[in-house]
């Protein structure tokens, strides 16, 4: 049984989902006062919901020993699979890139995106911060974004431009929706897209660590955040660190924390990384920064590179998808498919 099937008021069901309670296990782990606060309802109503949820959990346990009764919060692989299949992904703006990523950027996972300066890392980061906000009725997640800017490349006017591009594409793909849905129409303003990004500008690695520690509290208060973008995770860690072992420990601590947050709050974490030259066997080669042990820290790794005058994305690491590459373009509207890519251009977002 899922949240959507619980025999409770429809408004409560919608609120539960909006507040980030995506599974029964997550719901039954919550306490009544906390649930009441999250849904802004009375405590006794929250107790009712929990009673129903516990009952539903029990009835599920009747036809097979449920793991959640043995180990609180645990899920079996079947539940996880169906949970994952029902989950929506965050559109990158390019259908080809979505394809190699298995539908887009995945929630509950940490994705690293690296590339040379100017290839479009920040553009993709901003695009994701906008696309995560596409309303549910238009096939998006309708969530909010946290953008942690360490380099100062988050240009508000560009964000506005990308939001405008996103809206014009939505209206193009859903022409019938925008005369009959005045409520949805109200939301589709670049201004509201901008206002739903929580933007942190940080100027040192101590601030970076502090913000990531603070995220735990912040995300607890803002359950509608569906993506956390750090642009870039690298910059402040490339100065002043003489002790590389310490740097590795600090960084893996950060990535572990982010991985936990992404699971706990059902959100995507995107870390942008820089490229450096590595000296191996007498020659210099391009590689992502922060060293070898860092490359184990992220679940997925997408490398952006130039192939002649075309931009390409290369999925370098993923637990479930094959290694693949695809072209993309950065246009005035944001990240889109490359114009002369062979695949079908017209595809619903």
């Amino acid at each position: 049984m899922e949240i959507a099937d619980l025999p409770i008021a429809t408004s409560h069901r919608a609120n539960l989902l909006a507040a980030g309670y995506s599974s029964l296990a997550a719901l039954s782990a919550a306490s009544p006062p906390r649930l009441a606060r999250d849904l802004s309802i009375e405590v006794h109503e929250a107790e009712e919901i929990l009673k129903v949820a516990v009952g539903a959990n029990k009835s599920k346990g009747a036809d097979g020993p449920s793991t959640s009764s043995v180990l609180k919060g645990a899920q079996n692989a079947w539940d996880m699979l169906s949970d994952e299949q029902s989950r929506r992904h965050i559109n990158t703006g390019s259908a080809d890139l979505n394809n190699i990523l298995g539908g887009g950027i995945h929630c509950k996972e940490v994705t690293e995106i690296g590339g040379v300066p100017g290839v479009g890392k920040t553009q993709l980061g901003i695009q994701l911060a906008i696309n995560v906000q596409i309303p549910v009725e238009y096939g998006g997640l309708g969530g909010k974004a946290v953008y942690i800017d360490t380099e100062g490349s988050f240009m508000v006017e560009r964000v506005y431009q990308i939001a405008e591009g996103c809206i014009s594409d939505i209206l193009e793909y859903f022409p019938h929706c925008h005369d009959k849905a005045p409520a949805g129409q109200e939301k589709l303003k670049p201004e509201s897209f901008l206002a739903d990004i929580y933007y942190f500008r940080i100027c040192s690695y101590t601030e970076q660590i502090a913000v990531i520690n603070y995220l735990e509290k912040f995300l607890g208060e803002h359950k509608d955040v569906r993506i956390v973008i750090i642009d870039s995770v690298t910059f402040h860690f490339r100065q002043d660190f003489d002790d590389m072992a310490l740097r590795t420990r600090v960084l893996s601590g950060l990535s572990l924390k982010l991985m936990k947050l992404s699971k706990a709050y059902n959100l995507a974490v995107v870390l942008l990384n820089q490229v450096t030259t590595k000296f191996t066997e007498g020659s210099f080669q391009l590689t992502l920064a922060l060293g070898d042990s860092w490359s184990h820290s992220c679940t997925n790794r997408l490398i952006l590179y130039w192939n002649g005058n075309e931009r390409y994305g290369y999925l370098d690491k993923s637990p479930s998808l094959p290694v693949a590459s695809a072209p993309y373009a950065v246009t005035i509207k944001g990240v889109r498919d490359a114009v002369n890519s062979n695949s079908k251009r017209v595809r619903v977002m």
Partner: peptide, 16 residues
Amino acid sequence: QEPRPENPLLLLPSSR
């Protein structure tokens, strides 16, 4: 001491 998020919408006029 607590990091505060900024609202990009409010940054827009000053950046222009």
